[in-house]
Amino acid sequence: MKVLVVGANGQIGKQVVSLLQESDEYSVRALVRTEEQLTAFEQSGVEAVLGNLEGSVEQLESVARDCEAVIFTAGSGGKTGYDKTLLIDLDGAVKMIEATKNIGVQRFVMVSALQAHNRENWNEQIKPYYVAKHYADRILVESGLTYTIIRPGGLLNEAGTGMVAIGENLERGMIPREDVAKTVVASLKETNVFNKAFDLVSGETTIADAVGGL
């Protein structure tokens, strides 16, 4: 299965790309924004393409062509204004969903945010970010694509434990980015999580068992 990783140069995206590259089941295409990023991926043996989530749907169709799945890990980041949150986390995600559907790619895995589906539990300090995630997720659910929406808690840069908790409504918690990336890849072919959305934090269940047992 060939997988397009959107947001491949991000902290989770890079780990997803590495996991896919190391796997015998997948090949990977990294979507990046700059020539420098393109060169870095190509030097590590990863196919990479230039693209911009603020560009057209047609441009995004071209970068996803020949792929069988899309993983969306892109985000505007904490250093930009809420204008970029709307343009990347919401409109960019929606354009990628449209492009994926238009060219007949069926599988779409979205990295969202803990409790993005539940307005009552949004973090007031970054509420516009949650608005963007909430509506991008809703549009994915309504798209007709075979989706999985993964809503991780607070993200850590420490080494993963491989042990997680998955559920519809979890208490706020933290999770290493490494474990998020491994859960994303484990979800690609796991039919138990097709057309499902779930919160994800560190826990006491292996990733394989948690994803397979949802």
Rank of each mutant, 00 (worst) to 15 (best):
V3H: 07
A8T: 07
G10C: 04
K14L: 10
V16R: 05
S18D: 15
Y26Q: 01
S27D: 14
V28F: 07
R29S: 13
V32G: 12
T39L: 12
F41K: 13
V46K: 01
N52I: 02
E54W: 02
E61V: 08
V63T: 10
R65H: 05
E68K: 09
V70A: 07
T73Q: 02
T73C: 15
G77N: 09
D83F: 06
D83S: 14
K84E: 12
T85I: 05
I88M: 06
D89R: 14
L90E: 09
G92F: 03
V94R: 12
I97Y: 10
A99S: 03
T100N: 01
V105L: 08
F108E: 11
M110S: 07
L114H: 14
A116T: 06
H117M: 10
R119C: 00
N123M: 10
N123D: 15
N123R: 13
Y129L: 08
V131F: 13
H134A: 01
H134P: 00
H134S: 04
G144I: 07
L145S: 04
T146R: 12
T146A: 09
I149S: 02
N157H: 12
A159R: 15
G160P: 04
G167C: 09
N169P: 00
L170R: 08
R172A: 14
G173E: 13
M174L: 09
P176R: 06
K182V: 01
V185N: 11
L188H: 04
L188T: 04
E190M: 14
T191Q: 12
F194L: 06
N195K: 14
L200A: 01
I207D: 08
A210W: 13
A210D: 11
